[in-house]
Design a binder for these strands. Structure first.
Lengths: 208, 208
DNA sequence: TGTTGGTTGACTGGATTGGTCAGTGGTATG
DNA sequence: CATACCACTGACCAATCCAGTCAACCAACA
């Protein structure tokens, strides 16, 4: 029978996201290593339902790839809109966006990354590849949009940009791995610490 | 028949490392997902030989965990010996060590990390857990050993330390993912760029 | 030539795989 | 109440893959 992705769309958001998250979690180590049994177990739905919605394992994977790609694409688009002349403000906005996404889909970045790494054993890999190209493009566009004259004149602006981006990214990963549950309290601590780190960057990398 | 790890030890280094690397690569996504068939395929040895050396899959895993743990432990020990009052010099040394290890065992850090993440479905997980504790310990010891009075007085020293560590780590990952083959030319470029990034850190985070 | 010892890969029984489908329970229509 | 439709279930299937075995092989050396 033909897959009914339309029906999947009509599902209540909570149930839909539970299935999507279970699938991303299982596919994060590559297409082949993922087990549909594990997915339905984590999503707490029956095997039949999964195949009713997506037809085949590959169908599910392609749907997931398209879904996450579109999600992140619009995310990046928004990021560029928010792109500030002050790159530190830009990164601040980016971090908030990323946090929101990760809160809703904890494995989305792992999933996308694996889609690139394992593109060999995946049927339709161009999609992910395109997205990753887009991702680096966004970074260079962010760099082009920002006002590097804010930086200290005695340091390479591109390298400084990288340094800041890497720092923020690693901070988020670090905080994430230390945070078992994202309640409001932890979210506030996250915002505060992030701000503190950005302040250090401002003090150190910007003109006096 | 009882496993003959002694025989494995007597193997020529090249063959031994090929087996170890194949195993780390396959175990990097967790114990259960690893296939001994894939390991012997990548290591280019017969199935029988693998089980002759290690007895069981679990035996192989435990051997691997001990091997990598000891390797990194002595590595960290050396790192502390090299620990400099000037933390930037310390990180420089650390990066060189890490690069050497990663060159010989490209998947060792992925493997160790996964041993922590998947400790649920792994028989003997304490080993990896101990190592990871050790890892964070080394970081705090490095911090304690270093002379934070070299830092600018108007920034939080612990956060600055983190910022530098994260940056260097991310730089190495980034360079690694962009480097298909580590010939001498690329290694020199690595050293040069790393030095440049550390120089920026020195200019920006250190006094005057 | 016989013995030893590292190495092989076809083989096995059992588990897991992607995928199916007869059936269930709930709800709306007649 | 009966009928029809619905999203949904999970036992089931053939095919594949799994960890682990073992009789045979081969090079080295006596």
């Amino acid at each position: 029978m033909t897959p009914k992705t339309a029906k999947f769309h009509d599902l209540p958001t909570l149930k839909r996201d539970k299935i999507l998250n279970a699938a991303m979690k299982e596919f994060r180590y590559g297409y082949k290593k993922a087990s549909t049994d594990a997915i339905v177990r984590n999503a707490a739905i029956s095997k039949g339902l999964l195949f009713f919605y997506f037809g085949t394992k590959q169908g599910l994977y392609e749907f997931l790839l398209n879904y996450t790609t579109n999600l992140l694409r619009s995310d990046y688009f928004e990021m560029l809109n928010l792109a500030h002349r002050d790159i530190l403000e830009g990164f601040w906005q980016m971090s908030l966006l990323k946090r929101d996404i990760s809160y809703r889909y904890p494995y989305i970045y792992d999933f996308i990354k694996s889609a690139d790494i394992h593109r060999a054993d995946i049927p339709t890999a161009e999609i992910a590849q395109n997205l990753l190209q887009r991702q680096t493009t966004v970074l260079t566009e962010l760099y082009n949009a920002c006002d590097i004259s804010l930086f200290r004149p005695d340091i390479d602006p591109q390298k400084t940009f990288n340094l800041i981006y890497w720092s923020i990214d690693a901070f988020m990963d670090d905080f994430d791995s230390k945070t078992p549950n994202w309640d409001n309290e932890n979210y506030d601590r996250f915002l505060q610490e992030l701000r503190e780190y950005l302040d250090i960057c401002k003090k150190c990398f910007y003109k006096n």
